[in-house]
């Protein structure tokens, strides 16, 4: 599906942001560059910009995710958009209104953009068929989370100065991770080398056709990376025999102080949050100067501002 049209005249992205695959290198770089300019503005006394005055951005959240919702809300408000938060509890069709009916309601309200978080993979793609406004995927099931990948790329670029040629290890539950999918796609587009690391049970079938390397051995990968990103691992996966125990997982794939020492001097440690301290990441690693976890949150607002600006700025 082609969601983003490149137009030399407008030099930007239009339509929807459903997948990191919607962005080619030029469009992704434009988002990052725009975010950088916007980040510079966030230091000044008046943070608000008039750019999206009169536009309505709906945060349609079918899953609790306070941090992502607040990040999008802050981004939209700094651009002076009107923000409507619409949280839907429960996620099955049997409870409450269907996604389609909700979409028609938002359509009638004249939403210029709908930021959707949903437990079902592909829900944003469905929504995009039912509303005229721009749909931004803020995390769908075990599919994608493109703005997270953009903010991760932004963080890497601002810490390490470049993306092209970087070696990035993404460690953990790749199978269920929307962050991993979006990062693998986006980082590949931007010229980084991605290695997905995890137990074989948590790497998806067919991963060999992705534009990435894979490894089961974290310790072998660490000395060669510029970035190591730990994914959140839910303890419930243990009940489903994806791995035997939290302890064994931490021992084989957890980022602890000993593993931190195996990294090259300049390498950084990332985590999309929320963290399971002691599981995929040790507390002293999370709080080390190499960790970008707090920056990632701050960068999230700038990146989401850039996405909203580029999607909505030119929309008639």
């Amino acid at each position: 599906m082609t969601n983003l049209e490149q137009s030399p005249d407008r030099g930007g992205i239009t339509g929807h942001l459903l997948s990191a695959a919607d962005l080619d290198a030029a469009a992704a770089t434009q988002v990052l560059d725009t975010a950088a300019e916007l980040a510079a503005l966030s230091d000044r006394s008046v943070k608000k910009l008039p750019t999206l005055r009169g536009r309505t951005v709906v945060n349609l959240f079918y899953e609790d995710s306070t941090r992502t919702r607040i990040s999008f809300e802050a981004a939209a408000k700094r651009l002076s958009a009107d923000v409507i938060n619409f949280s839907v509890k429960g996620s099955s069709v049997s409870k409450g209104e269907s996604l389609k009916d909700t979409a028609l309601t938002l359509q009638a309200m004249g939403a210029d953009a709908v930021v959707i978080r949903h437990a079902a993979s592909g829900a944003p793609h469905r929504l995009a068929r039912w509303v005229d406004g721009s749909v931004v995927n803020a995390g769908d099931g075990t599919h994608e989370h493109p703005t997270q990948a953009l903010l991760d790329a932004y963080t890497m670029r601002s810490r390490l100065g470049r993306l092209s040629g970087l070696t990035v290890a993404i460690v953990g539950d790749v199978l269920h991770s929307r962050v991993a999918r979006s990062n693998a796609l986006l980082l590949n587009t931007l010229g980084a080398d991605v290695t997905l690391v995890g137990p074989p049970t948590l790497l998806p079938v067919g991963v060999d056709s992705w534009p990435v390397k894979t490894s089961y051995d974290l310790d072998a990968v660490l000395p060669t990376v510029d970035v190591v990103m730990a994914l959140r691992v839910q303890r419930e996966r243990m009940e489903d025999s994806f791995f035997p125990s939290a302890r064994e997982y931490a021992r084989r794939y957890g980022l602890d102080a000993a593993r931190l020492r195996k990294l090259p001097e300049h390498a950084i440690v990332m985590h999309p949050g929320p963290m399971n301290r002691g599981m995929e990441i040790a507390p002293d690693v999370a709080d080390s100067p190499r960790s970008t976890i707090v920056e990632q949150v701050a960068n999230g607002v700038s990146v989401r501002m850039a996405v909203l600006y580029l999607l909505l700025g030119g929309q008639v």
């Binding site: 137009s7 005249d9 407008r10 030099g11 930007g12 992205i13 239009t14 434009q30 560059d33 725009t34 300019e37 916007l38 510079a40 503005l41 910009l49 008039p50 750019t51 651009l79 850039a306 600006y309 580029l310 999607l311 909505l312 700025g313 030119g314 929309q315 008639v316």
Partner: peptide, 17 residues
């Protein structure tokens, strides 16, 4: 980001301040 013709002319690359 302060232009009043964004809707007419499309989102432009943001310049440097």
């Amino acid at each position: 980001l302060y232009r009043d013709d964004l809707r007419l002319r499309g989102a432009r690359a943001v310049g440097h301040t």
